[in-house]
Every structure is written in C-alpha cells, then in structure tokens.
Amino acid sequence: MTTRRRAPLFLRPSWWSGRFASWGASARSAAERAETRFPVVTHLTARMISVNIFDSATRLAAQCFLTAVPLLFVVGAFAPKAVRDQLISSVSAIFGLTGASQDLLEQVYRATDDNLREATGLIGALMVLLSATACSRAMQRLCKRAWLVPRSGVRIAPWRWLAWIGVWLCLLMIQGPVRDGFGLGLWLAVPVTMLSQILLWWWSQHLLLGGLVGWRPLLPGAVLTGFAVTALFIGSKYYMPRAIDKSLTEYGSVGTVFTLLSWLIVLCVAIALGVTTGAVLAREPWLARRLGDAGPRWAAAEAGPRGRADGDG
C-alpha cells in the first residue's frame, strides 16, 4: 500500500492565506502604533493626499514654463543691455547653463531683442505680464490647499499676484552674483542662497495667503522649502550642464526644452512638499505652542462684518 506524501507547508494555499492574514494584522498593528506615537505622520500623509502634491506641482511647473518664461524674454527685450546681460547671467546660473546651451540662450535673446519689441509693443508686454499671474495664482492655490483655506468665503486681493511676480523678477536678476557668492565662492553662495530662499518663501506664503496665517506658523514651511530649493540649485550646478548638453546634442533645442521642463517639475515638487510639510508641522501641538499661533484666521474672514459685529455684541 502506497502512502501519499504531503506537500511542504509553503506550497499549501492554506499556509499562505494564514501568513498573509498574519502579515496584514501585523501591518495594521504597526500602523496603529505609529499613528498613536507619531500622529504627525498620519496628518502629513492625509495632507499630502488632499493637496495632491504631484498634480499641483506639475500644474505649477506648467504655468511657470508657459507664462513666466515668456515674461523673461519680454523683459529682456525691453530692458537696457546691462539688465539683459544680468538676466542672461542669472538664468544661466539657475539652470546651470554652460557652453553650447549658454551660447544658445544668448543667441535667442539677441535674435528676439528688436523683433520681439516691435511685435509686442507696450500693450502686448502688459498682457504678457498679466498672463504671468497664472503662475502666482497656481502658487496661491497650492498654499491655500496646504493650509486648508476654504475656497469660498475668503477673498484675497488680486494685486498680490502682480506683487509676487514683481519681487520674483527682481530676485531673479541678482541670482547670478548670489550663486557665485559675489565672487568669493561656494562657501558664501550656499548660506546666502539659503537665507534668501527662506525669506522669499516666508514672505510668499504670507502674501499669497492674504495674511490669513500669522508670520510665525509660516516659518517651518519657509525653512523646509528654502533648504530643498537650495539643495536643488547646488545639485543643478553639477547635473544640469551635462544633461542639457547631452539633450542638445542628441535632440537639438527641443531636447533642451524637455530637460528644463523636467527640472522645473522637480523644483515645484520640492516647493509643494516644503510648504505642505511646514503647514502640517506648524499645526502640531508641540510646535504650535512654541510658535504661539492663535489658529487660522479665515473663520473671521468668512464671518465678515456681520460676524465681527455679532462678536462685538
């Protein structure tokens, strides 16, 4: 009489179903313990999902590429030669353009100088400036999502979009000497770039949120964004020249466009992560106590004059 040999445990479906059930229970238990011990992880994950980080960052990058970049060419066409040369230097420093790619940028600016000035005129230049506010509006939507500002009932003055574009252009003009450490090297360029980026994103959040969030709660997001942007700028100094030169050699100017757009997407993802993470951390009890924030101010903004009158009564 022959006896049937039993299959090994790991080949039995019942064994695997039991193991999967055990692993699932362990994962749920670990997640519950993490939520209990580190609630900030849960809050941050939920906020990232609500903000839709990659979608928001891609939209922001697209608006920068379609509206802000044409504005640079219009400014270069109407600005004096010294300002145009400084703009070329700053754009080259930001994107890490060297060699053939930098020569291409200079050729584009010189070729479009007189033609673009004649074609657009003053009215056209103003229209380009107004269309560039799409970039600031996209940035504003990102900040409002990160801070859970309600869409309805809160009005933020449109002049803030133009102000953000204007300050952004002024800071862009000086990025060339800043990235060079004012001629003293990287040891000065890194802290100056980091400090300027922290101040920029601290002020940007306050401006685009219309003062609905106090200055101190905005500081964590400004610091995180400043660190992330500075790290990308340093990395781009070593990576972007090779990537752009390779794409320029293999695909021509079209390859350069895709490389720059990819870099913009990565930059906008870093900005979105920094702002959103800072908004979550600023509302955590252990940090909110130190920041001394009284809480969100859009409830009063939504109430309006009637709400303030009721409160005074």
Rank of each mutant, 00 (worst) to 15 (best):
M1W: 03
T2L: 05
T3C: 01
P8N: 06
L9Y: 11
F10P: 09
L11D: 12
L11G: 12
P13Y: 02
S17T: 13
R19T: 03
A25N: 14
A27K: 12
A31T: 13
E32H: 10
R33Y: 04
T36D: 12
T42K: 13
H43P: 02
L44H: 10
L44P: 09
T45V: 11
A46R: 15
M48I: 03
M48K: 03
M48F: 15
M48N: 08
V51D: 04
F54Y: 10
D55Q: 12
A57E: 03
A57F: 05
L60Q: 12
A61D: 01
F65Y: 14
L66T: 13
A68E: 13
P70R: 04
L71Q: 06
L72R: 05
F73D: 09
F73A: 10
V75T: 11
A79L: 03
K81Q: 12
D85E: 07
F95P: 00
S101M: 06
S101H: 01
Q102K: 14
D103H: 09
L105C: 01
V108A: 15
R110C: 01
T112R: 06
D113H: 14
D114A: 08
D114V: 05
R117W: 02
E118Y: 09
E118S: 15
G124M: 07
L126R: 07
L126V: 15
L130Q: 00
A132M: 01
R137Q: 14
A138H: 03
A138R: 06
A138Q: 03
M139D: 10
M139K: 07
L142C: 07
L148K: 09
V149H: 05
G153N: 04
R155D: 04
R155F: 09
R155K: 11
A157S: 09
A157E: 11
P158I: 05
L162I: 06
A163Y: 06
A163W: 08
I165A: 01
W168A: 14
C170Y: 07
G176M: 00
P177C: 08
P177Y: 00
R179M: 13
G181D: 03
G183E: 01
L184N: 07
L186V: 02
A189P: 02
V190H: 02
L199K: 02
W202P: 00
L207H: 09
L208P: 04
V213K: 10
R216F: 07
P217S: 03
L219G: 06
G221F: 00
L224Y: 05
A228Y: 01
V229Y: 07
F233N: 10
G235Q: 07
G235Y: 00
G235D: 11
Y238R: 13
Y239F: 15
Y239G: 13
M240R: 00
S247E: 09
Y251R: 10
Y251F: 12
Y251C: 07
S253R: 10
L260G: 10
L261Y: 15
L261Q: 12
S262D: 11
S262F: 15
I265S: 09
V266D: 01
L267T: 13
L267G: 04
C268Q: 09
C268E: 09
I271M: 14
T277P: 05
T277Q: 08
L281R: 05
E284Y: 07
E284K: 11
A288C: 13
R289C: 12
R290Q: 05
D293K: 10
D293M: 12
A301G: 01
E302D: 06
G304H: 03
P305D: 15
G311H: 12
D312C: 02
D312Q: 06
